[in-house]
Amino acid sequence: MTTDTSTTTPAPAPAAARPGWWQGRSELLVAALVIALAAFLAFQTAAMHVPPGVESPGPRFFPTLVTVFMFGVGIALAVQVIRRPARPAAGAPAAEAAAQTTPGGDADADAAGAGAPAGAAPAPRTDWKTVSIVVGSIVVFILLLQPVGWIVSAALLFFGVSYAMGSRRTLFDIVLSLVFSSVIQLAFVAGLGLILPAGVFGGIF
């Protein structure tokens, strides 16, 4: 497979108003996280309490292998990102697979155009505002589930996510959210016997 065609990606010309060094290198954060995870594994493996009388290879053996492996790939990723930056924050995995060259060759262009909103267009920026509304909705759901119960908290979650994604029919959305969470409560609690916190509606079901 002709992967890594990103080698041929023209490097951003230094002449143009040069964006910061971090441009296209934000993936270094991922590498840092991988190395941090490896460090965590190493520390915990060393500090692990091994029950006496365990025959070798013991519980530390495999984690040690994984730790070494994680350090290795973390460093390799960092090196790769530093050497070849300017990967546009990628679009759909579809684009990735599409870029897999067929033996025929020129099908790539078609496939990329078909599969990916990100193809030749500039990489879409991460919309942190939307992401944080979604994450916030999930956090609120987790905090409210026990005290308030499924119907209200799940309705809030549904409303929050659909609002974040751009739905603005407020009244309709509120009704839809409540209907959706109530239907789930009925179908799964009454029908399949799952246990959901009833919360403030405890007496009804």
């Binding site: 979604v134 979650l157 994604m165 799964f188």
Partner: peptide, 17 residues
């Protein structure tokens, strides 16, 4: 919006259940 809101609700439902 509704599709992904629904998926989110189903996710938390599954994990909690």
């Amino acid at each position: 919006p509704y599709l992904y809101a629904g998926i989110t609700v189903f996710s938390v439902l599954g994990v909690y259940a």
